[in-house]
């Protein structure tokens, strides 16, 4: 109850500070591996950012943009994992990476262990700097209920 009330206070007294400071920005990278022991360095960025969008996609996105909003939520979870780490934030990210892998019809039975890390990009002077600030535990993914077609 107290937690819910704490979440509610910023609703009644919002701060409305948007983009006032451009802080270090997280990238989510993940790796899949066959066993819990074998370590891999094959990290790939989890990104849904298209190279470009057509006019029709842009117009449609004003009404319906679920994937992008989910990506922004994952960014929020990544920031929460640094400022106020919770298992829930980590699980939200894992759940969405898993869903994306299933959507891409990746065979999870061969590499059922998932791990992700957070790489924060910031500007130092005129150069961009990358810092790995979080590495998750290995997570064994369960098989989807049905085989992808």
């Amino acid at each position: 109850m107290l937690t819910t009330l704490k979440l509610l206070i910023p609703v009644f007294i919002p701060s409305w500070q948007f983009f006032n400071k451009i802080a270090a920005s997280p990238r989510i990278e993940f790796t899949m591996q066959a066993t819990a022991e074998k370590q891999t360095d094959n990290w790939q960025e989890f990104s849904r950012r298209p190279k470009q969008r057509s006019l029709l996609t842009i117009i449609k996105s004003i009404f319906y943009n679920p994937q992008w909003n989910e990506s922004l939520f994952m960014t929020t979870c990544a920031e929460r994992l640094i400022s106020n780490p919770t298992e829930q934030a980590s699980q939200e990210i894992i759940k969405r990476i898993k869903a994306e892998l299933e959507l891409r019809q990746v065979n999870l039975s061969r590499t059922p262990y998932l791990q992700f890390r957070l790489v924060f990009v910031s500007r130092e002077g005129n150069k961009l700097q990358e810092d790995i600030l979080f590495i998750s535990e290995l997570e064994k993914l369960e098989e989807p209920d049905h085989e992808p077609n």
Binding site: F19, K21, I22, S25, P26, R27, R49, P50, K51, Q52, R53, S61, W68, S71, L72, T75, V121, S122, R123, L128
Partner: peptide, 15 residues
């Protein structure tokens, strides 16, 4: 700030 927003933030909707 806007330059940073476009260069490295998570927000730009396309590459």
């Amino acid at each position: 700030a806007l330059q940073d927003l476009f260069r490295f933030s998570a927000y730009p909707a396309s590459q």
